[in-house]
């Protein structure tokens, strides 16, 4: 009986938990974390910033040549900032609204080797930014805010021609699933 009971206990422990399932990454059943930036937060901030950026006069006509600058992650969470940038660059490039300069060392060396007289696109604008966080507590309620800041700099004049800030704030006592 003792052995049987132990076996029953072991089976029950092994059977615990929810099996993993696939979810729509843009759906409403995603995990919402209070202490980190979730995948849907990048999508929210990115799509709002994209809408703001294409409304700026710099994007009114043609396909300006864009180079990606640095995006500083100033949060305690470790993530690749490409998660934010891709939400802007993918739709812009695919719609033909920007000419995106490849940013790796090979591309830069090729541009340098081609010289200034060659017909190689030069960056007209550089996109740079910062991601910050702010935390607050009230009793057991925790609040986490992630601030996404982007600036578009016109290379020729060295001035910012568009800048935007989007804040994603999450509040609760524990992480949850859904909106």
């Amino acid at each position: 009986m003792n052995k049987l009971s132990l076996l029953a206990c072991a089976v029950l422990i092994v059977g615990c938990g929810t099996p993993a399932t696939y979810k729509d990454p843009s759906g409403r059943e995603l995990v919402v974390s209070l202490d980190k930036v979730n995948i849907q937060d990048f999508a929210t901030a990115g799509s709002q910033m994209l809408q703001s950026m294409i409304s700026s006069p710099s994007f009114a006509k043609g396909a300006p040549v864009l180079q990606l600058g640095s995006i500083t992650n100033d949060t305690a969470d470790n993530f690749d900032t490409a998660l934010l940038l891709s939400k802007l660059t993918v739709p812009l490039v695919n719609a033909g609204r920007v000419t995106l300069l490849d940013n790796d060392a090979t591309a830069n060396a090729a541009r340098a080797a081609a010289g200034s007289s060659a017909n190689v696109p030069r960056a007209e604008y550089v996109l740079k930014g910062k991601i910050l966080e702010d935390r607050a507590n009230a009793g057991s309620t925790r609040q986490g805010s992630f601030i996404f800041q982007l600036t578009l700099v016109e290379v020729k004049r060295g001035v910012a021609v568009w800048t935007e800030e989007k804040i994603v704030t999450k509040q609760g006592t524990k992480n949850a699933v859904g909106f």
């Binding site: 009986m1 003792n2 009971s5 132990l6 029953a8 206990c9 029950l12 422990i13 059977g15 615990c16 938990g17 929810t18 949850a176 699933v177």
Partner: peptide, 19 residues
């Protein structure tokens, strides 16, 4: 002998998350 099934029951109750 009586404790173990009780423990199993407890585990079972705690198994399905309340959420």
């Amino acid at each position: 002998n009586k404790l173990l099934p009780l423990l199993a029951l407890g585990l079972l109750a705690g198994c399905t998350t309340v959420l």
